Simulated scan of single mutants.
Amino acid sequence: MVMDIKDIMNTIPHRSPFLLVDRIEEMEEGKRIVGKKCVTYNEPFFAGHFPQEPVMPGVLIIEALAQTGAVCALSADEYKGKIAFLGGVNKAKFRGKVVPGDVLTLEVEMIKVKGPVGVAKGTATVDGKKVASAEITFMIG
C-alpha cells in the first residue's frame, strides 16, 4: 500500500510545520510500515539547529518515527478516525546526522499491541545507514 501526503493527513492530525512524514511506501496494516521524509534546507528547525551546520534534531527524528507508526496503527479499522499519542520512548540511539538533502527512511514494526496501547520498534536510515532507532510506546484515544 502506498500513501501520499493527502492520505497521511487524512490519517493523522499533524500539519506543517510539524508533519514529519511525506509518503508511505510499504504497509502491512497494524504490523509494519515504511515511510519517507525528504529533508530540505527550508525546514523551520534548521534556522536555529544549527545555523552554521544544519542538523535535524534527534527528537524530531523520533517524532517522525512515531508519526509513521501512528499511520500504521490508525490504519486498522478499529482505530480509524482516532488519534495516536506518544506514551514513551525507550532505547533511543543516534548514530549519524540528518542534514538538508537527505531522504530519511522511517521503518516501524509493531512489537505488541493490547487494546489501545502498543509498543513499536522504529529505525531511521539515510542511504541505508542507520541514523537512529528507538522503542516507542503509544496510546490510541
Results as ranks from 00 to 15, higher is better:
Pro44Trp: 01
Val55His: 06
Pro54Gly: 05
Met27Arg: 09
Pro57Lys: 07
Pro57Met: 12
Met27Trp: 06
Pro51Lys: 01
Ala47Tyr: 01
Thr40Ala: 02
Gln52Glu: 15
Val39Asp: 00
His14Lys: 11
Gly35Phe: 10
Glu29Lys: 15
Met27Ile: 15
Pro57Gly: 13
Ser16Trp: 15
Thr11Ala: 03
Phe46Asp: 01
Arg15Ser: 09
Gly35Asn: 07
Met56Trp: 05
Glu26Asp: 11
Ser16Arg: 08
Phe18Pro: 09
Val55Pro: 10
Val55Tyr: 07
Gln52Leu: 09
Glu28Gly: 00
Glu28Ala: 14
Pro13Arg: 07
Ile12Ala: 06
His14Gly: 10
Val55Gln: 04
Glu26Met: 11
Gln52Asn: 14
Lys36Asp: 00
Ala47Glu: 10
Val34His: 05
Ile12Cys: 13
Glu53Ala: 09
Leu20Met: 15
Gly48Thr: 08
Gly48Trp: 00
Thr40Leu: 04
Asp22His: 05
Arg15Pro: 09
Glu28Lys: 10
Arg32Phe: 11
Phe46Ile: 02
Val39Tyr: 01
Pro51Trp: 03
Gly48Tyr: 05
Glu53Thr: 04
Glu53Leu: 13
Lys31Asp: 03
Lys36His: 14
Val21Pro: 13
Pro44Ser: 03
Glu29Ser: 15
Glu43Cys: 10
Phe50Gly: 06
Arg23Pro: 13
Asn42Arg: 08
Val21Asp: 10
Tyr41Met: 10
Phe45Glu: 06
Glu28Phe: 00
Met27Glu: 07
Pro51Gln: 03
Arg15Glu: 06
Ile24Phe: 01
Tyr41Trp: 00
Pro54Ser: 06
Gln52Thr: 11
Gly30Leu: 07
His49Trp: 05
Lys37Thr: 02
Ser16Tyr: 15
Glu53Gly: 01
Phe46Val: 04
Met27Asp: 03
Glu25Lys: 08
Gly35Ser: 10
Val21Glu: 10
Glu26Phe: 14
Lys37Pro: 04
Glu29His: 08
Glu25Ile: 15
Thr40Lys: 11
Pro51Glu: 12
Pro54Ile: 01
Phe45Leu: 04
Glu43Asn: 07
